[in-house]
Nucleic acid binder design. Structure first.
Lengths: 363, 363
DNA sequence: CTGAAAGCGCTTACAG
DNA sequence: CTGAAAGCGCTTACAG
């Protein structure tokens, strides 16, 4: 437990026999102070276990030294659900169904936070994280705005209008989305990724038409990915169909069944993993061997894609890098508030797994 | 981009024709202000888009309004690895091996952060998160200390001595570990969980001795879990062995092979999931059917436990609740700095999966 | 219920 | 290189 009242610059100054200005200098720009006095001050800091007060520093320095990260909301009720000090009251849960998972069906969030966290502290800042709970998005934004020097917002956690408004009072970067001309952004090369993946598929796939499982029409990601698909098709023409799968397992499943009626496809390319997994299940039931008779691929790299039968080749967004670049974009913006908004595009990775590899290793 | 200099209480006061004290009151304790003036002030706040400066508030109010969460470090290099604005430079990665994952092999971190985040904002605080990168643990702690009103530290991210020292200058709660008599803590009922699980196993298991895969001797978790195992054994005697598996896949694998030489076990109870999964693999190769001939269980609830063949029955720590309770403990401590250190124990859940269920549903 | 004033603990020109 | 002093934008007794 904290004992005594914390020491201040005044205490340190007195202890070292200097003025508070000198104490401050030793801490902020040591090169401006003689070695001998610097050492005396540092010793006093040690002796008193002095820790600078961040609020005072922030107020005087006109910067908080903190960056904010706004991530999608969640459903966690903070009314605690686990009994406390209740040894023996263990609950047995049937976990055969996909019971948990929450809003994050993959490790993206974790990686993003890690990337942002590392970059933030490297730069000498702190990272404040907030999840826009649907109720109080507006309040959280207001609150954050007053606490940070810059704010990274994950796409779709906030309505565009709120983002624009927030960007008016604090440096802001949009992550995994864009608002061209309005704010800085860092997003991923959806189009290039899908194009590269499709080219690869067209090269290795067995005979048969290619089925593209299109995503939701209102999603920018879906639009970009489909453009990538068509880019590749233009370069490697061949028979193909598109079916609306709406990013869902069900959608992919039905689209595959429909396709199977007119003969088995040689490849199924999903706009995301969920729809590809739905198609995979349909093919399996229909007795179509993957990848020998049909190659299947997804996009996103959700956990399930690693554990399906066979594991799904997919495209992964570099989430840690998104976090890192978001922070860097914020720092640039803070350094040069007047610069033109910039949109950064990060390259993606293709994860090759057995659903596309005819000579895949077996483990 | 942020345009003009932000408005202050003075601007709002002038705009509303009141003093700054009244503005402050409207924001902090509205009930102390007449409805009519309150509305006038609120209108001014709206008009000017006033956002309180957190640093000034923190300095004047002697609280930062921020809680800190220190999580385990990571290896993410912030020297960015993904090419930027490089459409087409997609990398193809062989993902047949367990190539990624990092320090968090499960979703614990994510859930913990979510729980802590929700509870923190619910209480009107912000959440500052930091990962102790090995280099600068000491600095990060110092830095955090000055920025927050309370600090939650995940067990094993910091040497005990550093924790004790930090606890001296800021309210601190240890999460998933204990330092009895020194700091508040929130941890999990390892002993009760293992005891409940073991009792269940002893009840449903087929004939044959029970093999317990013990964890690392220097781990408090291992000690507690083994005590739980023995508690259950005392109540349901029967043949059993213990083997050191050191929390590792390899350790569990070898222990199972060794056991198989003297005959197949009727149950294998791992002190953690990794070792249980190692044993599971050994049993599978040896042709022992799980769960028909041998029941297998783990502890932790890592991702892999859901996707093994068969899926592994295990004990899950309620990470979100750990986060929530950690925050609550911090808030109590802040409210009553003089109280005795408290150690909270949360109950765990047993996740029943096919590795222990003889009549398990098939999907 | 409202206002004047002190003070929170720093940083940073400005002199010397 | 060092110090005196102003000021950062709030909150909070204290009067009235």
């Amino acid at each position: 437990m904290p004992r005594r009242k914390s020491p201040t610059v005044y205490d340190v100054a007195e202890h070292a026999g200097v003025s508070i200005a000198t104490v401050s200098r030793v801490l902020r720009s040591p090169e401006k102070v003689t070695v001998s006095t610097r050492e005396r001050v540092l010793a006093a800091v040690q002796d008193l276990r002095y820790v600078p007060n961040a609020s005072a520093r922030g107020l005087a320095g006109r910067r908080t030294g903190v960056l904010g990260l706004l991530i999608p909301g969640h459903d966690i009720s903070t009314a605690s659900r686990r009994p406390v000090d209740a040894s023996g009251t263990i609950e047995f849960l049937d976990d055969h169904h996909d019971s948990h998972g929450g809003p994050f069906r993959n490790r993206y969030f974790e990686q993003l936070v890690h990337g942002a966290e590392a970059a933030t502290w490297d730069a000498g800042y702190g990272l404040l994280i907030a999840a826009g709970s649907s109720v109080s998005r507006d309040m959280v934004v207001r609150d954050l705005t007053g606490r940070v020097d810059g704010l990274a917002v994950i796409a779709r956690t906030l309505p565009d209008e709120l983002i624009t408004r927030a960007a008016d009072s604090v440096p802001l970067v949009l992550v995994a989305g864009r608002l061209p001309g309005t704010t800085d952004s860092v997003s991923v090369d959806n189009r290039g990724g899908m194009s590269a993946l499709t080219e690869y598929v067209l090269r290795v796939k067995p005979p048969g038409p290619t089925l593209y499982l299109a995503g939701s029409v209102d999603s920018p990601d879906a639009v970009e990915r489909e453009l990538g698909f068509r880019d590749a098709l233009a370069a490697h023409p061949g028979p193909w169909h598109t079916a609306a799968a709406d990013f869902s397992w069900q959608g992919g499943h039905e689209a595959a069944l429909e396709q199977l009626r007119s003969g088995p496809p040689g490849a199924v390319i999903g706009a995301n993993d969920q729809s590809a997994l739905g198609a995979l299940a349909a093919l399996r039931v229909a007795g179509v061997r993957v990848p020998e008779e049909c190659v299947v691929t997804g996009f996103d790299g959700i956990d399930e894609s690693r554990y399906s039968h066979p594991p799904l080749t997919t495209v992964r967004q570099p989430m840690a890098d998104l976090g890192i670049h978001a922070v860097e974009a914020l720092l640039s913006r803070i350094a040069d508030p007047g610069a033109e908004p910039r949109d950064l595009r990060l390259a993606v990775d293709v994860l090759l797994r057995q659903s596309s590899e005819l000579s895949a290793p077996t483990d």
